[in-house]
Design a binder for these strands. Structure first.
Ligand SMILES: Nc1ncnc2c1ncn2[C@@H]1O[C@H](COP(=O)(O)OP(=O)(O)OP(=O)(O)O)[C@@H](O)[C@H]1O
Length: 715
DNA sequence: TGTCTCGGCATTTTT
DNA sequence: TGCCGAGACA
């Protein structure tokens, strides 16, 4: 059995899979079989007699988790029950579901996704009498999230704060955390953070989980953040059974706090760590590897490694320069059709990869026109549609009466005469007494709010509605509960009144929600899944060409990969261009995109691209210049005279703007950046016609920008 | 309280 | 471009 598991592996892969139990790190490039090795290691542990329930395998998405669990089962048979294969977030959520006290939560606790967290932050900022212009909830949410990724709690955040602005942000963070606790809720980052804290401070619970998970395995290790590293360390200690696989060149989540250096410090953090490298790529032709390697070699911060393939030389990448994004989309559709018809390629073996979700629309249109089946991964998530969120909010309030964000959402949906005034009075009274809105209403009645009798009647009616539904909650299955909510609130009538045209689609969504609820055993597990399912996990449509972002493409592989929108400002993204480190992350992202291809790589760009109204004339991506010329075959749409003119004008004006940017800032200026908040200009370095600005932000540290590109306000 | 219009602003990327 | 929040009015 053990030998069998090693049969179709190369010697290094075997060495990793059968390494003695203890810390193991597999460090290897794209397509070298890291995921395969990790899956095999799980099977190997099981075959060696380890209990399934003693194994925790971490993947990057829920979908990858499902596939890995499936794969393990096919390797070892049914005795894989009790094995946990999930994302960090899902694993921690499950632990907290079993032991809410581990995170200081009460049973029924809610998971706050980005939207919930943003709403709660906005309310917190308002309650502190701060201006939401100076403290944009989105930006603050980012800062809080980055802090939590580093396990920086409000106290430490306050200690590290410099100046009034940062102290105010710290205050917001502290109140936000208090509001979460009051609402019996945890945001995404808390799922990890609370578990880490619980394991560190509750020895009896920690003991339970350490005994339970003797083996922890982590895929895509380069994208784990410090909190997640701490979680692993809490479970396995310095010399336990930890098996991590990763590739620093595929680190594409530093923007949300991932710490790829965790890969490089593995040997310091774990005693007796064994490090295995894999060098053979089993996915791509040498042409594709040559292209990918040439691009990634341009990164300065990098740890070079060898990678070879025995899959033949292959064909060069095809490159097309389009007039605009519609021309690009049509050309892609035509090319894809050729692969399907003449090349005999299966549509599910073709992917079109873009940088941002917004780029998918022209492609969807062109594919529809051409009659090519396709599916879009991601985009607007199912669980983010309004009607779905409304109904989920009802269920959340039933599971967790203290969930004020959910309550605020449904208080007057459908309309029931509870207006702004009533809501504000209720929120203020609840905040004053330090309790949730519903518990206040239940404990003290609506009278304490000092409202008109009409307002009181409306509120009373709402509480009665929730109580009626609550009585059903414990007796009925989640899907039946959805029916009850829809019926009791006349929700369908509400949707029809709102917009009869979209009604049909919304009804379909409700039916789908009901169907997915029918699969869940109980309300809590249903709500948990709804909160944690990501866009990438959603399987839409049976088969067809896959349209997806480069981030969503990580870990996947296709025969044919088309990367579109290879222009400065698109890929690399404008927001990244000003920051040298961010450009390196963009380059890694492009590396990830290219290395998804087995045999065929197609690269396109557009000379003109509409970007909310205005046309933009972006030069081709710098990444295209980094490709070896002999591995690229180029065709281009004819250049229209008007386009060329506009392009040169655009370039000239960019230079003029760059000159103008030179004198604007001096060292010591306090500035405000939409993403990083307030900072101080530390240095101004002349770079050609432009200046480079070094700005120190709290929470985000020092960042470098080009003066002509970065958008700053005086603080 | 509810509805309408205007203006500002935003889109990276995602668990 | 389209969404959301703020403010004016019925
Ligand atoms: N020893 C092997 N023999 C044959 N095929 C292999 C071998 N090892 C891996 N492969 C195949 O190579 C491909 C890439 O493997 P896998 O996805 O595990 O690589 P990876 O290192 O995780 O890739 P990436 O990091 O780029 O996502 C898969 O199709 C896998 O089946």
């Amino acid at each position: 059995m053990l030998e069998e598991l090693l049969e179709d592996l190369n010697p290094s892969q075997r060495e990793a899979v059968s390494a003695p139990i203890g810390p193991v790190l597999v460090l290897a490039g794209a397509g070298s079989g890291k995921t395969r090795v990790l899956t095999r290691r799980v099977a190997w542990l099981l075959a060696a007699g380890e209990r399934p329930s003693s194994i925790l395998a971490i993947t990057f998405t829920n979908k990858a988790a499902g596939e890995m669990a499936e794969r393990v089962r096919s390797l070892v048979g049914p005795n894989a029950d009790g094995l946990w294969v999930s994302t960090f977030h899902a694993a921690c959520a499950r632990m907290l579901r079993l032991h809410p006290e581990l995170g200081g939560l009460r049973s029924g606790w809610s998971i706050y996704d980005q939207d919930d967290a943003r709403r709660l932050l906005e309310r917190t900022i308002r309650r502190l009498d701060l201006d939401t212009k100076r403290f944009p909830p989105r930006a603050i949410a980012q800062q809080v999230s980055l802090a939590k990724a580093r396990l920086v709690d409000p106290e430490r955040f306050t200690d590290e704060a410099e100046g009034l602005y940062e102290r105010q942000v710290a205050m917001v963070y502290r109140s936000y955390q208090a509001a979460l606790a009051e609402a019996n809720a945890a945001d995404f980052d808390d799922l990890i953070g609370l578990v880490v804290e619980g394991l560190a401070t509750r020895p009896e619970l920690a003991e339970h989980w350490r005994r339970r998970f003797r083996h922890v395995l982590i895929d895509e290790y380069q994208d784990a953040n410090p909190a997640q590293h701490a979680f692993v360390a809490e479970l396995v200690g310095r010399s336990g059974s930890v098996f991590a696989v990763g590739d620093v060149d595929q680190s594409i989540y530093a923007f949300r706090g991932a710490d790829p250096s965790g890969v490089l410090t593995f040997e310091e953090r774990f005693d007796g760590a064994k490090v295995v490298t894999l060098e053979q790529n089993y996915r791509s032709t040498n042409a594709i590897l040559g292209l990918a390697n040439a691009v990634i070699a341009k990164n300065r911060r990098r740890y070079a490694k060898h990678l070879f393939s025995e899959l033949g030389e292959g064909t060069p990448a095809r490159r097309y320069q389009a007039t605009d994004e519609r021309d690009e989309a049509r050309w892609v559709a035509a090319t894809v059709r050729e692969f399907l018809q003449r090349g005999g390629v299966d549509p599910s073996e073709i992917a079109v990869i873009f940088r941002t979700n917004a780029q998918s629309r022209p492609l969807e249109e062109a594919f529809s026109e051409a009659g090519i089946p396709f599916r879009v991964v991601g985009g607007v998530r199912f669980y983010e549609r309004r009607e779905v969120r409304d109904l989920l909010a009802y269920l959340r309030v039933l599971a967790n009466p203290d969930d004020d964000v959910a309550l605020a959402r449904i208080l007057n949906v459908p309309r029931r005469g509870i207006g702004r005034g009533t809501e504000e009075a209720l929120q203020a009274a609840a905040a004053l007494r330090g309790r949730s809105m519903l518990s206040l209403l239940r404990a003290e009645g609506v009278e304490v709010l000092g409202l008109t009798s009409r307002q009181e009647r409306a509120l009373r009616g709402f509480v009665e509605l929730i109580d009626r539904l609550g009585a059903l909650a414990s007796l009925h299955r989640p899907s039946e509960l959805i029916d009850a909510v829809v019926a009791e609130t006349s929700y369908l009538e509400h949707l029809n009144e709102e917009d009869p045209i979209t009604l049909e689609g919304r009804l379909e969504n409700i039916a789908e929600l009901r169907a997915s609820a029918a699969e869940a055993d109980d309300l809590e597990s249903f709500l948990e899944r709804a909160a944690l399912v990501s866009a990438v996990d959603e399987v839409m449509g049976a088969s067809g060409v896959t349209l997806l972002t480069a981030h969503a493409a990580k870990g996947l592989e296709f025969d044919v990969v088309v990367v579109v929108g290879l222009e400065e400002g698109v890929f690399p993204h404008v927001r990244a261009i000003v920051d040298a480190e961010a450009v390196e992350e963009e380059r890694r992202l492009f590396y990830v995109a290219m290395t998804r291809a087995r045999t065929t790589l197609v690269l396109t760009s557009a000379r003109r691209r509409a970007s909310w109204g205005e046309p933009l004339y972006n030069p081709p991506s710098r990444f295209l210049d980094e490709l070896p010329a002999d591995l690229v075959a180029t065709t281009a749409a004819p250049v229209a005279v008007g386009t060329a003119c506009a392009e040169s004008i655009q370039r000239a004006s960019a230079v003029v703007e760059a000159r103008a940017a030179r004198s604007e800032w001096v060292v010591g200026d306090r500035v405000f950046h939409a993403r990083y908040g307030e900072g101080t200009i530390r240095r101004v370095v002349p770079r050609g016609v432009d200046d480079e600005l070094v700005i120190a932000f709290h929470g985000a540290g020092e960042r470098r920008f080009f003066a002509s590109m970065v958008k700053l306000r005086r603080a």
